[in-house]
Design a protein around this nucleic acid. Structure first.
Ligand SMILES: NC(=O)c1ccc[n+]([C@@H]2O[C@H](COP(=O)([O-])OP(=O)(O)OC[C@H]3O[C@@H](n4cnc5c(N)ncnc54)[C@H](O)[C@@H]3O)[C@@H](O)[C@H]2O)c1
Ligand SMILES: NC(=O)c1ccc[n+]([C@@H]2O[C@H](COP(=O)([O-])OP(=O)(O)OC[C@H]3O[C@@H](n4cnc5c(N)ncnc54)[C@H](O)[C@@H]3O)[C@@H](O)[C@H]2O)c1
Lengths: 213, 213
DNA sequence: TCCCTGTTGTTACGGATTTCACAACCGTAG
DNA sequence: CTACGGTTGTGAAATCCGTAACAACAGGGA
C-alpha cells in the first residue's frame, strides 16, 4: 500500500533538509519551492513533486514553513532519533572520521571502533576504545548497531562487509575503493573521491589547464 | 556532432576502469560483460550499452581484453595524463586529503595548497607549502591547475568556489556541506558522508537496531 | 568444412524520472 | 465581498535510462 518511492527522491531529501536547516539559521520562516530550488540548483517542480510523495506540506500563495518542513523531512528520513554507528578500520581515514565533528550533531554516534592491527587495538579514539575486529560479530550481537562504516584497505573490505552483514547490519557506508557485495535489503553508500575526479576529467579533458596560453 | 553521452554513463566508467585494473592485478586477461557485471552489481547489458557509446571494444565469443579495455576507458575519461590539483583548506580533512596516497597513482597531483589561517600559511603538507588563500587568483593565473578541491567550512565554501571559478578552474571536488553554485561549464562533485547516511536511514528506520530483542 | 558454444553490439521496448502546465487555493488589499 | 499576485499539488507529456532480445560473429572441435 505504501507507494514505492524512487531512490533518487530519497537521496534528495537530505539535501533539502540541509538547506532548510541553513535557512532556519538565517532566520527565514517560510520558503517557496522556487527559492529553495535556486539555492540547490533543482527545479521547483522537482521539489514539489518529491515532497508530494509524502504529503502536502506547503501553503498555496506562501510556500513552506521552514521549520515545519524540516521536521517533516527529518521524520520521513528517520532522523528524529539517534543512530548507532560502528567504524571498522582506524587508519588515517578512520581516525579522521572518528574525530570529524559533523556526525554527532546529526544524530550519528560512533559507539564502537574496530581494527585488526594489534598496535591499534586497545588505543582510544574520541573516547572510544579500539576493539579487535575479530570480535566484531560477538560485539555486534550484544550491542545493537545501525550503521557500519568501512575504512579498511580495499583488499580487506569485502570480508569486513560480509561480517557486518552476517551480524545483521542493514546500512553500510563504504570508503574502500571497491564495490561491496551485499544482500538487497542492506543499504550501501560508497564514498570515493578518486572516482569523483575521474568522472569530472571527461568533461574537462579537451581543455588546456585553466585556459593557459 | 558527438552524440550526447548521459552523465550516468560517464559516472560508471571509472567504476569499470577500477574493476578492470583489479582484474589485471589478478592476472586476468579477458573478461565478459557477464563476469564484470557480477563483480560490480551491474547488468551485462548495461555495461555493453555504456561501452557502445564509444566504440566496439569486445570480441564476440570471448569478451573484452582487460588491459585493452582499461586503456580505452582511461583514454575516454582523459586519465591518460597527469592532472594538477589545488587544495583549499588545510584543516583536519584537508591534511588527510593531502596525505592520502590514493590520488597520486591515478594521476592526480596536488600541486598547490591554500588556507586563510595565518598559523597554517607557510607550513608544509606533503612537501607542498601552504599558501595564503588571498593569493589564490594570482597563483592560479600563473600556474595552470585543472581541479580544485574545497575543504573549508561550509560558510566559506561558496566564496572559495567563486574564486576558483573566476580563476578559470573547470572542475571542483567539494567536501563542504553545501551545494556550490557554479556556471554550467564547471563540473562539480560533492562528497558528504552525512548526506549518505541520512538517505540510508530511510530504508532502515522501521527496523529495530540489528534485530535486537 | 560445418556446427556448437559463448559473447558482443544494437535496436526496440518499457519503465522510471523529470518537466510542464494549470486548476485550486491562500492571504491581502481595495 | 471581490480581485489579484503568488504558490502549491498533481495529472499528463516528454525525456531519459535500463533491460531484453537477438542477429552476427569468433573460436574450437568433430
Ligand atoms: N585516507 C583517505 O583520505 C581516504 C580517502 C578515501 C578513501 N580511502 C580508503 O579508505 C581506506 C582506508 O584508508 P587509510 O588511509 O585509512 O588506510 P590505512 O592503511 O591508514 O588504514 C587502514 C586500517 O584498516 C585496518 N585493517 C586492515 N584490515 C582490517 C580488517 N580486516 N579488519 C579491521 N581492520 C583492518 C588496518 O590495521 C589500518 O589501521 C582505504 O581503502 C582507502 O583507499 C581513504
Ligand atoms: N573532517 C572530515 O572528516 C570531513 C568529512 C566530510 C566533510 N567535511 C567538511 O570539510 C570541511 C573541512 O572540515 P575540517 O574538519 O577540515 O574543518 P577545519 O576547521 O579543521 O578546517 C577548515 C580549514 O579551512 C580553512 N579556511 C577557512 N576559511 C577559509 C577560506 N576562506 N579560505 C581558505 N581556507 C579557509 C581554515 O583555516 C581551516 O584550516 C568542512 O566543511 C566539513 O564540514 C569534513
Amino acid at each position: 500500500m505504501t507507494l514505492e518511492i524512487p531512490e533518487v527522491v530519497i537521496n534528495r531529501l537530505p539535501v533539502y533538509a540541509r538547506a532548510l536547516a541553513a535557512l532556519a539559521m538565517d532566520g527565514e520562516t517560510v520558503v517557496s519551492s522556487q527559492t529553495l530550488g535556486e539555492r540547490l540548483d533543482v527545479t521547483p517542480a522537482q521539489i514539489r513533486k518529491d515532497l508530494s510523495y509524502f504529503g502536502r506540506f506547503g501553503k498555496q500563495g506562501r510556500g513552506y514553513n521552514v521549520l515545519g518542513l524540516l521536521a517533516k523531512l527529518r521524520e520521513i528520513l528517520g532522523l528524529d532519533r539517534k543512530w548507532r554507528v560502528a567504524l571498522v578500520g582506524v587508519g588515517r581515514l578512520g581516525q579522521a572520521i572518528a574525530e570529524y565533528g559533523g556526525f554527532e550533531p546529526q544524530g550519528f554516534q560512533i559507539v564502537a571502533v574496530f581494527d585488526s592491527d594489534p598496535a591499534a587495538i586497545g588505543t582510544t579514539v574520541k573516547d572510544v576504545v579500539v576493539r579487535d575486529s575479530a570480535d566484531l560479530d560477538t560485539f555486534l550481537r550484544q550491542n545493537p548497531v545501525d550503521i557500519g562504516v568501512v575504512a579498511v584497505p580495499g583488499h580487506a573490505a569485502q570480508q569486513v562487509v560480509d561480517r557486518l552483514v552476517s551480524a545483521g547490519i542493514r546500512a553500510i557506508l563504504n570508503y574502500a575503493p571497491m564495490t561491496p557485495h551485499v544482500p538487497a535489503e542492506v543499504a550501501v553508500r560508497n564514498i570515493d573521491p578518486v572516482l569523483a575526479m575521474q568522472s569530472m576529467t571527461f568533461y574537462i579533458k579537451r581543455q588546456d589547464p585553466m585556459g593557459a596560453k
